[in-house]
Structures are given as structure tokens and as C-alpha cells.
Design a protein around this nucleic acid. Structure first.
Length: 508
RNA sequence: GGCGCUAUCGUCUAGGGGUUAGGACGGAAGAUUCUCAAUCUUCAAACCCGGGUUCGAUUCCCGGUAGCGCUACCA
């Protein structure tokens, strides 16, 4: 089953918080590559940093990943043949391999104190030399060193970096070469017995039979150490693919300073997972030809190619993500969007926590009305203000509407409209509205803007908004529903406005 | 300081020794609509700089510059 040609990739986050977009993209590229190759995706939790790791973050991480639409074949939650999948459960393996390196002479015990090392480093830096380890303990007699350690002297374990340049091939960057002169003999096991990241990764990746290491390019400079480690351990070196960094608009590394950066943030904003996936895929990758932008997850699995990943860093562009999101929102079945949008309205106090069937039916119309004008679901309640909130004073006095009130036919149009619409007992229908408007038109001679604008301002308080055909039924039906905040009917709005202008003579 | 990576419109990118350097987001203008949004059409907008190789470089090589990363008993 597990023949040597089987692709195995891994995503290895630290549980230090919510999944960040940079890591999400790394996870995505791993996933796409694995799924396309019919390979295996491994999820490994890098929790050796006890200070920053928290168990509850692991659950968040998995949720974020699942929400994006990613899945994995082996991991802490699903198990697998190469477990355990949490580094904190693998400590024995790290010790075992470190002792083996020691025995075989590829690593050595180092007794240098931190102060010594720091002094040495500062000196080298001052002399403009690469700050590599002095090698003081490199030539120590192994037997003697073992004895010192046995007698209780604090000792770290260092890897012996070979005396030749270290070369490796990177799928994204091509041939990479580092001179051994600048690669320090790295500590792999601290004197406290806690292994170091660069060592742990290699042991895990090798033992988990990872064939392709796809990760952020902040690890590129660490790769020679890791290659040396693979070689010292006698294990095959995997293929590497180092992905460029995602930057903020100021070309600095994307951080919280730049606004939303965690997957959870985007989810809360009402970004659809497929929009985020599509956008992230386009950061650093483009299809052959480079003219297509829209890719569903299934299409990405088919089209994606690591060979086409760009090595240069990419600036995260919210606007383009929003554009994609708008596309996917419009593409989605309305029921899905209604379901996703409902909580935003409940939270804003516009809908009851458990809307009944009538309210739901009515809410469908609101969503259909507003969705085209929105690029995130979270914007919906504020767009719905013209339905849920009616402020007669603002309608009459807002400077935005001054032009409309100043127009010569406004008062005449409104009076006619109020009279006709007010004389009906039944709720106003779009058909009746059309008839009324035609009558107002003949009686006042107003048409176009001078006809519609006064009515729009009178009913919504704003001179811009959606079509009356769709808006009026929403207002009329809404006024009959039991809602946390009463929705005013057309007539109620007119009443408000007219009483208002009577009470305030300055408004004409 | 040392080492590494990167460099095409404002942004994401395609392309590649000879092209009107293509697409998308955003921007501008127009169409449509009572208005806004949406939609459609059109337009503006780029090969970091300097050397070399070459008949010819934006493309290949070298150098510079800038940005980012690594340089830890951080991950």
C-alpha cells in the first residue's frame, strides 16, 4: 500500500492561537498537492514550545482547517500508522535519535555556558564575521565527555556540520547552496533535555515518511541544517518547496496590525470558505495562461501545480478577496446564505433568536434584496437599516436630502402620494404602488427623479436604495410581524413624516 | 555585520531573446436604473538601476539598490 512513490505531505502548526492566513495558505498548498497526487496529508501538532502552546488552541486550529474545507488522513484526532501526531508525545524518539547521533560520532556533547557562547557571538559580530559556533567542544574526547555528563555537568548535544557546502533542490526556488562556513553546528538537544525545533522537524518528517516538505520560506535558511541532519541520520532527504511570505499593504509581514488575519476573523466577517480558498490559492500561484481567477475547490485540485508557484512575496489584497466573496455569495443557493446571514440579524437585535416560518419567509426577501450590494455577510444588518429603522427627523433634515426637499415639486408629489396611499385600507402592493405613482405623475406633472426621489426619501430616509418593487412588500409584510424591533409600514412612515413636518414648520 | 531569498501596472499575476508586454482586483469614464449597489462597455496604468553576453535584452549572466527572512540551549 505504502509504496515509495506515494506522496506524503504534512502541515505542522503550533497551537498558539487561531490559524493565520499565512499558515492557512501553507496548509492549502500542501492539501492541494496531496489531493492531486492521490497522496497522504498528515497533520502534526508542534507543541514543544510549552510556553506558548495551549491545548484549547489545538481544537480551534482543527476547526479553522475544517471550515476552510481541508481534511487530513493522519493526525492527532484521526490517528494513523506513524503516530503519535503531537510532538509532546514523541519526546522519547527525539532522545533516542540524538543518542544515536552521539554514538555514531555525528553529534557531540557541548559544555559551553550560555555566557561563553554569547560573548563569542558578540565578538564575531563586532568583527563582521559570521556568528558561528566556535567549535570549542567539537574535538572533545567522546568518552571523556560522556563521563562529564554522567557526573552531572550540564551538556547540550550539537550536530557536526559537514566540511562541505550544503546543496539542495527546492521546487519553488530551484538549486540552493549554502557554504558550511556560515552554518553553525546547531544544538539539537538542549542541556535541559528539550529538543530544538530544527531537529525535531527532521526526526518527525523522516519518521512520518514525508516526501515533500511544503512550508513557509522563513524556513529556507534553516534547511541546510536540516539537510545535514537527514544525512547524519542516514535518512533520505525529502523534496522541499518553500512558499513566499504574505505581506501587508505596507510590504511588512502580515500581522494583526493589518486587520483581519486569522481564518476565524474572515469567518466572522461572513467570508465564504470557498472564496478564501480561491483567494489564497491565487496568492503565489496562477494557472497556465494566467487569465482565469475563479476556481472552486474541486477545480483547484485539478489545476494546482507546485511547479507554478511563484517565489516572490505577495501582498494580501482584501478588496480582491471581497470581490471573490461577492462572486461566491451570489453563486450560492439562497437558503445557504439565509442560514449564514440569520445570526448576524439575531445578534443585531433585528430578528428573534428563533424566527418562525412567517418571519423566515419574510427574511428570505430581505436577503435576496440586499445580497447583491454586499461583499461580506456581516454588512447585511447595516444595509437593512432602511427596513428596520425609520427616522422621520433625519429624513426631513439630513443635509444629504436637502436637494430633494428643495426641489419645486417635492411637496406636491408627497401630498398626492400620501393622500392616495393613505386612503387604502389594505397593505400597499407593488402593483398598487405603480398605479399610485402614475396618478401622482399625471396630477403633478413630475417625472423621473423629481417624482421618485421625494417618495424614496419619505419612505427610507435616504435618496438611494433598492427598487421599490421589492422594498415595499418587505415594509408592508414586516409591519405585520412580531419582531424585536417593529418595522414600520409605508403608511406609518408617511404619518411620522407628515406629523413631523407639521410640528416643525422650518422643514418646508 | 554575515548568509540566503525576492524584484513585470497601486495590488495579485501571465509571458518570455524580437510581443501593440496579456488577464484580474482596485481606479476613471460611459451605458442602464428614480437613486445606490449589481451588471455591461471603454480607458489609464508595469518589465528596479547599472554593466556584460547578443544583430537584438524586460527575459540570460554579473554587480548595485531595496524589501523580506535566517543568523538562539525561539518556533
Amino acid at each position: 500500500m505504502n509504496n515509495s512513490s506515494q506522496v506524503r505531505v504534512r502541515f505542522a502548526p503550533s497551537p498558539t492561537g487561531h490559524l493565520h492566513v499565512g499558515n492557512a495558505r501553507t496548509a492549502l498548498f500542501n492539501w492541494l498537492f496531496a489531493r492531486q497526487a492521490g497522496g497522504v496529508m498528515v497533520l502534526r501538532i508542534e507543541d514543544t514550545d510549552v510556553e506558548r502552546s495551549e491545548a484549547r488552541f489545538e481544537g480551534q486550529l482543527l476547526d479553522d482547517l475544517k471550515w476552510m474545507g481541508l481534511d487530513w488522513d493522519e493526525g492527532p484526532d484521526v490517528g494513523g500508522p506513524y503516530g503519535p501526531y503531537r510532538q509532546s508525545d514523541r519526546l522519547a524518539m527525539y532522545h533516542e535519535q540524538a543518542e544515536r547521533l552521539l554514538r555514531e560520532g555525528n553529534a557531540y556533547l557541548c559544555f559551553c555556558s550560555q555566557e561563553e557562547l554569547e560573548r563569542d557571538r558578540a565578538e564575531k559580530l563586532a568583527n563582521q564575521l559570521p556568528p558561528v559556533y566556535s567549535g570549542n567542544c567539537r574535538a572533545l574526547d567522546p568518552a571523556e565527555a560522556q563521563q562529564r555528563r554522567a557526573s552531572g555537568e550540564a551538556a547540550a548535544i550539537r550536530l557536526r556540520i559537514p566540511e562541505h557546502p550544503i546543496r539542495f533542490h527546492d521546487i519553488v526556488h530551484g538549486a540552493v547552496e549554502f557554504s558550511n562556513e556560515v552554518v553553525s553546528d546547531p544544538i539539537i538537544l538542549r542541556s535541559t533535555g528539550i529538543p530544538v525545533y530544527n531537529y525535531v522537524v527532521v526526526v518527525d518528517d523522516a519518521l512520518m515518511k514525508i516526501t515533500h516538505v511544503i512550508r513557509g520560506d522563513d524556513h529556507l535558511s534553516n534547511t541546510p541544517k536540516q539537510v545535514a541532519l537527514y544525512e547524519a541520520l542516514g535518512w533520505p532527504v525529502p523534496q522541499f518547496a518553500h512558499l513566499s511570505t504574505i505581506l501587508g499593504s505596507d510590504r511588512e509581514r502580515l500581522s494583526k496590525r493589518h486587520g483581519a488575519t486569522s481564518i476565524a476573523n474572515f469567518r466572522e466577517m461572513g467570508v465564504l470558505p470557498e472564496a478564501l480558498m480561491n483567494y489564497l490559492a491565487l496568492l503565489g500561484w496562477a494557472p497556465s495562461g494566467g487569465t482565469r481567477e475563479i476556481f472552486t475547490p474541486e477545480e483547484l485540485k485539478k489545476e494546482f501545480s507546485l511547479q507554478r508557484v511563484t517565489p516572490s512575496p505577495a501582498v494580501f489584497d482584501m478588496e480582491k478577496l471581497y470581490w471573490l466573496n461577492r462572486h461566491y455569495i451570489k453563486q450560492s443557493p439562497p437558503e445557504r446564505i439565509e442560514k449564514l446571514a440569520e445570526p448576524y440579524f439575531v445578534r443585531a437585535g433585528l430578528l428573534p433568536a428563533k424566527p418562525d416560518e412567517r418571519i423566515r419567509k419574510w427574511f428570505e426577501k430581505i436577503v435576496a434584496l440586499l445580497v447583491p450590494s454586499v461583499d461580506r455577510l456581516e454588512q447585511l444588518p447595516e444595509r437593512a437599516a432602511l427596513i428596520f429603522q425609520y427616522d422621520a427627523a433625519a429624513a426631513a433634515n439630513s443635509p444629504e436630502n436637502a436637494d430633494v426637499w428643495a426641489a419645486p415639486k417635492t411637496n406636491e408629489v408627497l401630498e398626492e402620494f400620501a393622500q392616495l396611499a393613505g386612503s387604502d385600507a389594505a397593505p400597499l402592493t407593488p402593483e398598487r404602488f405603480k398605479t399610485i405613482m402614475n396618478e401622482v405623475k399625471t396630477m403633478t406633472g413630475a417625472k423621473g427623479k423629481e417624482l421618485f426621489h421625494p417618495v424614496r426619501v419619505a419612505l427610507t430616509g435616504s435618496h438611494s436604495g433598492p427598487e421599490f418593487d421589492k422594498l415595499i412588500p418587505i415594509l408592508e409584510e414586516g409591519s405585520l410581524l412580531e419582531l424585536p424591533r417593529h418595522v414600520m409600514s409605508v403608511r406609518q412612515r408617511l404619518d411620522r413624516l407628515l406629523t413631523k413636518s407639521k410640528a416643525d414648520p422650518s422643514s418646508d
